[in-house]
């Protein structure tokens, strides 16, 4: 096992350009999940923990929130300004594991790991976040919606590092987040959904119902047209083209589809 520990972003990007490409880690919380089963011989890690000066900052301006790549869930929970400006971020952060995970796990890591059950990604995508990628070749911005191309597959190129997440500040007419798991806390999501309606329109983002966290575009257009729903089944019929849930150890496809439709139906009736 090789662990690189750069002290500057410049060095980090140089290491990302080397072969074999290391896996960047920040809090290491996802890495530990499979640590004991992972063959270590060829493991190469890039420990970003020393880049606090360059990657840890949260910047809230009049029109944007920028989360440096080392921003943890707890940083958001502990910031009254950020929690007020983007309440769903704090709400989702509080439901990620226990406090030990919240203080180590990062938003960028949650995006980078690419789990379909990621709890941080739906709210970011619903807020229309942009991922800032950097490499020795330069810097580019990618919409989080569009970042994923398949199960644990993303548009990030091997030498690119997520350096920040940018979220536009907009006037919102509706915003809510719901996570459904087996128990009341420290639970792995069976199904989750974040919904935002702002000046650019509706964004409905679900997790654990497709190979990656995704927007439900058919439902969004229906909402955009002002469609009112008479039953959860009506929503389910629309969602059929948006999601592709599976049966696995944590739940069933039928449950995920049904509960997502019901959550959407009742919460939209409440708060739309």
């Amino acid at each position: 096992m090789q662990v690189h520990r750069p002290y500057t972003l410049h060095d980090a990007l140089a290491l990302m350009a080397a072969t074999p490409t290391p896996t960047p880690i920040a809090g290491g919380t996802d890495l530990l999940v499979s640590w004991h089963h992972k063959p270590k011989e060829k493991l190469a890690l890039l420990d970003l923990s020393q880049l606090g000066g360059e990657l840890a900052a949260m910047r809230l301006t009049a029109d944007t929130l920028e989360l440096g790549a080392l921003t943890t869930y707890w940083d958001v929970i502990a910031s009254p300004e950020v929690s007020r400006a983007f309440p769903l971020l704090a709400e989702a952060a509080r439901q990620v594991g226990a406090m030990q995970i919240q203080t180590r796990g990062t938003w960028a890591g949650n995006i980078g790991n690419g789990s379909p059950a990621a709890d941080g990604v739906p709210v970011l995508m619903a807020y229309d976040a942009t991922v800032v990628l950097q490499s020795t070749r330069g810097r580019r911005e990618v919409q989080l919606d569009g970042y994923y191309t398949g199960y644990k597959k993303t548009v990030r190129l091997p030498d690119e590092l997520i350096v920040a997440i940018q979220i536009p500040r907009r006037t919102r007419k509706a915003e809510w987040f719901e996570k459904v798991g087996a128990r009341a806390a420290q639970t792995i999501t069976k199904v989750g959904v974040a919904v935002v309606n702002d000046e650019k329109g509706w964004r409905v983002v679900a997790n654990s119902v497709a190979p990656y966290v995704c927007r439900c575009r058919n439902l969004e257009s229906a909402l955009q047209k002002g469609q009112k729903f008479k039953s959860p089944e009506e929503i389910r019929d629309i969602l059929k083209n948006d999601i592709a849930p599976i049966n696995d150890m944590r739940s069933t496809a039928a449950y995920r589809e049904t509960v997502l439709s019901r959550v959407l139906f009742y919460r939209l009736a409440d708060k739309a």
């Binding site: 999940v33 087996a182 128990r183 009341a184 806390a185 420290q186 639970t187 792995i188 150890m249």
Partner: peptide, 30 residues
């Protein structure tokens, strides 16, 4: 009543959920 069960993999006979994340038991919030 609501959470606990150890599940064996029918292929290799291993307890599948052999960790405290996947072996779900009641937490304080429950």
């Amino acid at each position: 009543a609501l959470f606990e069960h150890t599940t064996y993999d029918p292929q290799n006979g291993a307890p599948i959920n052999s960790n405290l994340a996947d072996y779900v038991m009641a937490v304080n919030a429950d």
